[in-house]
Design a protein around this nucleic acid. Structure first.
Lengths: 247, 247
DNA sequence: TATTATAAAAGTTTCGAAACTTTCTTGCCG
DNA sequence: CGGCAAGAAAGTTTCGAAACTTTTATAATA
């Protein structure tokens, strides 16, 4: 019976998957669509300097690398223009946005401001669920930070992800949607610079772990003042060290 | 002689236009490309409530309205997603982002913070050229604000544009690129709400003119404290009045 | 009549070919 | 040899048709 419509088969096969999908709780991200996480992949590749700053982003390369059409890529790149990761010059195409000392200084300042304010708010409003998440994400991060230097390097991708999740968990209870949005914007910008410092980080590694713990402790103790101070130092120290390498 | 290449004709016709184009001073905007100002047009149409909040943005309508292809529109809409004017749900398409009291409150707070900081910085660094521009854009705005109510309404589009230029001129000397960028983001968001208040603005109109002058005076007097205070009140009063209408 | 299955319609997403621009190369003339 | 025009190559931008999804309408069944 070849006349049977695809729809039927799909329904038969998916009925048990699709129904619950509608109310699945994890579906928070609005997401783009089919080129689902292309945006995230591209951003990651820029953040992790797979494409160095100022690199020209040619569609010929990109279509091959990601296996997607030109239009889809253009769409994602456009969003990255708005986020400040990519520049677009009419007729000349897309380039990875440049990095600079002044840019790093600005981004750091804004990020410190956003993150400390969001954290204070979060401390004031967080519930049990939030607390639990902070502890959980800290632990998940700690597992990697406790590894040997070599292992840590190998799993750097995971570290980046867990580090982001930890900081996100801290501020998650803040109710100001725009503050979270702006904070997130600056966080990703900083991530790009953080990567630059990956090369010449000496013994500072171990201190990072204790810093994260101190921030968490002050947060769980609901001491916004102290938490903000620690957090600010945490962020600024990292940036200072990166500024050294940017000479 | 039909064999003559297009290139030749174009060069003949454009040589005097294209050469100077390269160094034209007004070309500051990186701009998108061919659908040059589609992004701006779309944003304007959302800001001016041509498309009401939560409206579904169907490509069938949009292609007809703007006379552009689907791909081009998608690209512009993607950027507006990043800017927060539009939402995108996988498979369901684009919608104009909703408005709400809490959103307005957040946007106002952030905008006040950005604008006052940028203004202070600008006052500290502005040169003659900057001062001149402030005076010029204030005057240009004043011309419209001095008109009768009816005329003012008729030329509301111009007013919006000149109002934006005035505020941009004030902060133009600030050197923090990210601060200007974030400020601009919030400014456009507020613009959407400002439009809502257009309906029920009573006598407040005349006061606006004097407020603008007071801000400019304090700015030219290089009094950042006073300028910031006046500016903050200026912004907050507007938002308060809009909050009333959002009930 | 209510419910559910199927088809049709409406809409969105992806893709790549065609048009257009910029950049590089080559050949010509001074 | 340097400058410059012309053509070729490389790259970007636009567009709309095809594939796919969601929504709406229709028909069949209990």
């Amino acid at each position: 019976m070849p006349r049977l419509a695809c729809h039927l088969w799909e329904r038969i096969l998916n009925i048990h998957l699709k129904k619950p999908r509608k109310a699945e709780p994890g579906d928070e991200a609005p997401a783009s669509s089919g080129g689902q996480d292309l945006l995230a992949r591209l951003r990651d590749d820029i953040v992790r300097h797979t494409f160095a700053p100022e690199t020209k982003l040619k569609f010929a390369d990109l279509t091959e690398r990601y296996g997607l059409g030109i239009g889809t890529l253009r769409e994602a790149l456009s969003q990255l223009v708005s986020e400040g990761f990519v520049t677009l010059e009419a007729g000349k195409g897309f380039r990875v946005a440049p990095v600079s000392r002044s840019d790093l200084i600005e981004v750091t300042d804004h990020y410190v401001g956003f993150e400390t304010r969001a954290l204070s708010s979060s401390i004031g409003r967080g519930d049990d669920e939030w607390e639990t998440n902070v502890v959980a994400s800290f632990h998940r991060l700690g597992i990697i930070e406790d590894l040997s230097w070599q292992e840590r390097m190998r799993r750097h991708g995971d570290w980046v992800e867990r580090h982001r999740q930890f900081h996100e968990a801290l501020v998650a209870a803040c109710s100001d949607r725009w503050l979270l949005r702006l904070r997130s914007l600056m966080f990703y910008q900083l991530e790009r610079y953080r990567f630059l410092s990956k090369m010449n980080r000496e013994k500072s590694q171990t201190r990072k772990g204790t810093e994260h713990r101190a921030i968490m402790d002050a947060t769980l103790a609901r001491d916004p003042q102290k938490a903000a101070t620690l957090l600010e130092r945490h962020i600024r120290e990292t940036s200072e060290s990166i500024l050294g390498t940017l000479a």
